[in-house]
């Protein structure tokens, strides 16, 4: 094994509850194995580090072909949640609470706590400047641990030699 520390960088571009977890889970595993972790939040991914949004990330059943009725414990095989039902008020909240409960059952921490664990373990978090400007956000809008608002070019500079994973 080489002496140089392996580096991994994640680009989080989605703000749904299901898309917040991949970088958190893999980032945590990387830190536990001594790998340097940088996470760049862009576009909707900014919701994951937005103080006002992080506890309210959601999962919509509409057009989600992987979400099956059987996830609710109803033995219906491949039958999906009909899109027509998915548009009903409350269905997004329902799907969200379903996923949150399943995560809790696996002892997976909520997103805010997970982010803090990563920061405590040394992960470096950055927000994308263009997205921040587009959404009218400021550094104070982000959770503790977000180091800075940086440009795409800065991100490229700081991740030289890293494996980059786009989510």
């Amino acid at each position: 094994m080489s002496d140089e520390t392996r580096k991994v960088a994640f680009i989080c571009s989605k703000g749904t509850l299901d898309m917040a977890y991949p970088a958190l889970v893999m980032g945590w595993a990387a830190l536990g194995n001594g790998i340097d972790v940088t996470i760049f939040f862009t576009f909707w991914g900014l919701d994951i580090i937005n103080k006002a949004r992080v506890d309210h990330l959601e999962l919509a059943p509409v057009a989600n072909t992987s979400m099956k009725m059987s996830m609710m414990g109803i033995k219906t095989g491949n039958l999906g949640i009909p899109n027509l039902l998915g548009v009903l008020p409350g269905m997004t909240a329902f799907a969200t609470s379903l996923m949150k409960n399943k995560m809790k059952g696996l002892e997976v921490p909520p997103v805010r706590e997970y982010l803090q664990m990563l920061v405590d373990a040394g992960a470096k978090l950055y927000a994308c400047k263009m997205s921040v400007d587009m959404m009218g956000l400021k550094k104070e809008d982000f959770v503790d641990g977000v180091l800075d608002i940086v440009t795409a070019g800065d991100f490229m500079d700081m991740t030289e030699g890293a494996q980059i994973i786009f989510i």
């Binding site: 830190l31 536990g32 790998i35 373990a121």
Partner: peptide
């Protein structure tokens, strides 16, 4: 797992990564 360790011992994530630097899991 690391989270089981921090929850079970009361040692914080920061301390755990300081005590066993560069990859405490393994």
């Amino acid at each position: 797992t690391l989270r089981t360790i921090t929850a079970g011992t009361g040692v914080s994530t920061k301390e755990l990564f300081t005590l066993f630097p560069k990859g405490p899991a393994k």
